[in-house]
Every structure is written in structure tokens, then in C-alpha cells.
């Protein structure tokens, strides 16, 4: 006989994580067709991006928040392996690592490790996907989560991403990614409450 007890209810509580931010959003609607999407340079850019299989670059990041007197600054390295391994190693001011692999986000900070399955946190997904899908040249993913606006040309381009999902749009106004050809220069995230973060990507780190 199978003797069992108690597990499901108590164990299920860790799902509370979900409720930490805004209430869970409704299911993400299907991508809307962008009237301005088929842009020759945009298509070419995605092709260039998709051709890059891996990269390792330095970064600096600045978070501006209304409740803070001065921005939070950090610096470190970004590692990317196509199509879905993304790693952010913060070296300053404190060591921290953030690994995204197959839709699971693992954050290691001091002694603590947090593991998030992105499927459980629909409101976090657009953030992560904005960078991952851009790096991978994954047009379908980009257009699933965002209204995508391409401006400039291959030599100097900007992607403006506006969240499709209403709950996400409630917290995030837009994400602007700029670069030259297959090299990404910066990712700026502007939140609806005026807070913003700017990730500036620096030189390639020799292996």
C-alpha cells in the first residue's frame, strides 16, 4: 500500500514566490502582427545576431530608483552560449552570479541560492527574453512578448521593445537595445514608475 501524507499542501507554499510582486497576470496573448516589422535591416540584423554562437563581454550596470539617493552601480561579465545559456557574473561591488539556462534562473548571492523557473514568473520573462532573444536573433520570441520597433541602420541600430502583456506593461514601460551590426552596446529598461536601469556592454573578454 502506498502510505502518503501532507506533502502537497505544505510543499506547494513555495509557489508564494509568485505573489511577491504584482498579482499573477493573465495568460500572455498571442503575438500581435507588427505592421512595421518587416524591415530589411531588421531582418538582416537578426541574421547577424543569430550567427553569433557565443560571446563573453564585460559590462557595467546602473540602476536608478526613486527610493535610493544614488544609483546602484555594478560591473562584471556577461557570457552567452546560443541559444539559451546566459550568464551574468557580477564582480563589483559584490560577487554574484545569475545563470539563465533552459528557462531556469539561478541566482547565487553570498551563501544563498535562489532558483526560479521562468514559467512560474510570467512577469520576469520579458526582461530576460529581451536580452536572450535579441542575442539569439529570435524574432518569434521578441514579437511574442513585445511590440518591436526597429530604427537606424545596420551600422547603428536601436530596438525599442514595448511589452505586449498588460500586467508586464504595468511595471515596465519599454526596453531599448542599441548596437552596431552584431555587437550590442546597451540595454536600457525604463519602468512605469520612472525607475530605470542601463546596462552598458564593453569590450570582448579574451578567453
Amino acid at each position: 500500500m502506498n502510505v502518503r501524507r501532507h506533502g502537497p499542501i505544505a510543499g506547494a507554499l513555495a509557489a508564494l514566490w509568485l505573489a511577491l510582486g504584482a498579482a499573477a497576470g493573465p495568460p500572455v496573448p498571442a503575438a500581435t502582427v507588427q505592421a512595421d516589422a518587416p524591415h530589411d535591416d531588421f531582418t538582416a540584423l537578426l541574421g547577424l545576431l543569430a550567427a553569433r554562437r557565443h560571446g563573453r563581454v564585460s559590462f557595467t550596470e546602473v540602476h536608478e530608483m526613486a527610493m535610493l539617493e544614488r544609483p546602484l552601480r555594478s560591473a562584471g561579465e556577461l557570457l552567452y552560449e546560443a541559444p539559451d545559456h546566459l550568464e551574468k557574473r557580477t564582480l563589483e561591488p559584490r560577487r554574484e552570479s545569475l545563470i539563465l539556462e533552459h528557462g531556469v534562473l539561478t541566482a547565487q548571492r553570498g551563501r544563498r541560492t535562489h532558483v526560479l523557473s521562468l514559467r512560474d514568473y510570467p512577469q520576469v520573462v520579458p526582461f530576460v527574453e529581451s536580452i536572450r532573444a535579441t542575442l539569439a536573433g529570435d524574432r518569434a520570441a521578441l514579437e511574442h512578448y513585445f511590440h518591436v520597433q526597429f530604427s537606424g541602420d545596420l551600422g547603428h541600430w536601436t530596438l525599442e521593445l514595448v511589452p505586449v502583456d498588460a500586467t508586464v506593461a504595468h511595471t515596465v514601460r519599454d526596453i531599448r537595445i542599441s548596437g552596431a551590426r552584431e555587437v550590442i552596446h546597451s540595454v536600457e529598461i525604463r519602468q512605469s514608475d520612472g525607475d530605470r536601469s542601463l546596462l552598458t556592454i564593453g569590450a570582448e573578454v579574451p578567453p
Binding site: 514566490w17 540602476h63 546602484l72 554574484e96 541566482a107 548571492r109 530576460v128 519602468q191 525607475d195
Partner: peptide, 15 residues
Amino acid sequence: LDALAAPEGLLLKPL
């Protein structure tokens, strides 16, 4: 504050 700068910081900020 460190956690606030990470992606899940978005969830933690209101708290």
C-alpha cells in the same frame, strides 16, 4: 539592495 538590482528585484521592489 543587491537583490533589487537582479531580475527578481522587480518582484521585491514593492516590498
